[in-house]
């Protein structure tokens, strides 16, 4: 590997890395405190389609994590930024909980389509509405393209199949804003003044967290908590920079070897 500059920023995934559902990963609040004493910028990055920033923050506070709202960067934030940049008015096919992250964005007479995870909106009528807008030139923005996810009652379709269907119908490509897209990682860093080669990403999703970050020029550390399954590390090439049992070990490695 080429000579690296000194580490200046750490990106941390939330679900599966700092906590699994409503329990914190043991020792991670303490580990975060240790990391805060080091001269690095910290950002928390997550692919969320259902939870607004405020929902996330509330849960993290309950779990006694010391995190500020402006340190969190989600796929919803990325979508919002893109809408502002393009100055478009979206038809929002997102969960009602996620709507507050789009507050203030005009949605009258829409000329863009944003697709998140919104089973209640994925009916034929709404899909047709989205389709006609895209056919008329509205950009299609996908929060992410997950194929399916696990629900209490079994597997359920994610946003990916619906995005893929709309892409096929209109012969266009969606702009995907969440992990593992490079732009997501770069945007998460904006405001820190740090470069990708000065950054390490810690997460439990080998493809979306580690692979995505490494493609953006960062180091990636895979933790074996959350959705991690044996041999996940074989899913990407080049392999993860490092594999750790959990978040506290990843922090220890950073403090001892990367600063």
């Amino acid at each position: 590997m080429a000579a690296r500059r000194v580490l200046k920023a750490v990106l941390v995934d939330l679900s599966g890395t700092l906590h699994v559902e409503d329990s914190a990963v043991p020792g991670s609040q303490e580990a975060l405190k240790r990391l805060r004493n080091a001269p690095v910028a910290i950002r928390f990055v997550t692919n969320t389609t259902k939870e607004s920033k405020r929902d996330l923050l509330e849960r993290l506070k309950t779990l006694e994590f010391d995190i500020a709202e402006d340190e969190i960067f989600t796929s919803l934030t990325a979508a919002r930024n893109l809408l502002e940049q393009k100055q478009v008015r979206p038809l929002l096919l997102v969960d009602d909980n996620a709507l507050q992250d789009f507050r203030g964005i005009p949605t009258n007479d829409p000329n863009a389509v944003v697709v998140g995870l919104a089973p209640e909106h994925f009916n034929y009528r709404m899909m047709n509405k989205a389709f006609r807008l895209i056919l008329d030139g509205a950009p299609l923005i996908a929060i992410h393209k997950a194929r399916y996810y696990k629900r209490k009652d079994g597997l359920a379709l994610g946003p990916g199949p619906f995005v893929t269907g709309l892409e096929y119908a209109t012969d266009t490509k969606a702009t995907v804003v969440g992990k593992p897209e490079t732009t997501f990682f770069l945007e998460a860093l904006s405001g820190t003044g740090c470069k990708p080669e000065e950054t390490v990403m810690i997460g439990d999703d080998c493809r979306d967290d580690v692979g995505g970050a490494q493609n953006a020029g960062m180091l990636g550390i895979l933790v074996k908590t959350g959705k991690y399954r044996a041999a996940d590390e074989d899913k990407i090439n080049p392999a993860p920079y490092l594999i750790c049992e959990s978040f506290p070990q990843a922090v220890d490695h950073i403090l001892h070897h990367l600063l």
């Binding site: 899909m127 389709f131 194929r147 399916y148 379709l157 994610g158 990916g160 199949p161 619906f162 893929t164 269907g165 709309l166 892409e167 096929y168 119908a169």
Partner: peptide
């Protein structure tokens, strides 16, 4: 075809 593609992608 749109829903065929959706199921193809999902599975």
């Amino acid at each position: 075809g749109v829903y065929m593609k959706a199921l193809e992608y999902a599975c």
